[in-house]
Amino acid sequence: MSKDDDDWSRLMRLAMAGDGAAYDRCLRSMASRLRSGVRRAVTRAGLAASDAEDVVQEILLAVHLKRHTWDAARPIGPWLSAIARHKTIDALRRRGGRAGVPLDDIVDILPAPAEEPAIRETELVRALERLPAGERAAVTAIAVDGASFSEAASRLGTSEGALRVALHRGLARLSRTAQERT
């Protein structure tokens, strides 16, 4: 995975310096590479393949919320593998999957990049419904409706600054809610 690793490391460094386009490419590329490995792990654990996208989303949230724990002087691959493994093990355990599934290859082998499956209700939608109203409105406006901060702020009657804070808190809470689900 060295080529992807180099790309991701470079893109993530740009992203952490504020380059949104680089971050977008980095996350999408990671998602497509994670998808097949996670799908394999999920089916091996005896769970429905449709759970895989939930796990991919949990991993992406963790990558986002914990990216400051990556040492930018090193390649990002080992860090991403560790995060992906940790989140996958956790998700499989919560869903009552078989234990002891080998998980070494979630990002380590070269699968064909996989597309996101067709629309369905994900875990994150249910977690979104449980967010406090302000955070839910912020995440929905930016993520689902694809609004800009200024559009969303005027529509929701709030300031851009408050909206940014609500979005950040909402994302952190989504990750916790997913993790605490039993």
Binding site: Q57, L61, H68, I119, L124, I142, R164, H168
Partner: peptide
């Protein structure tokens, strides 16, 4: 929520704010 939507929200959340643990 689609993974596409999630990525959009993560990108919108912007550059890093947390300091490293060190």
């Amino acid at each position: 929520m689609r993974t596409d939507d999630l990525v959009r929200a993560l990108v919108a959340d912007g550059p890093i704010r947390e300091r490293p643990l060190a």
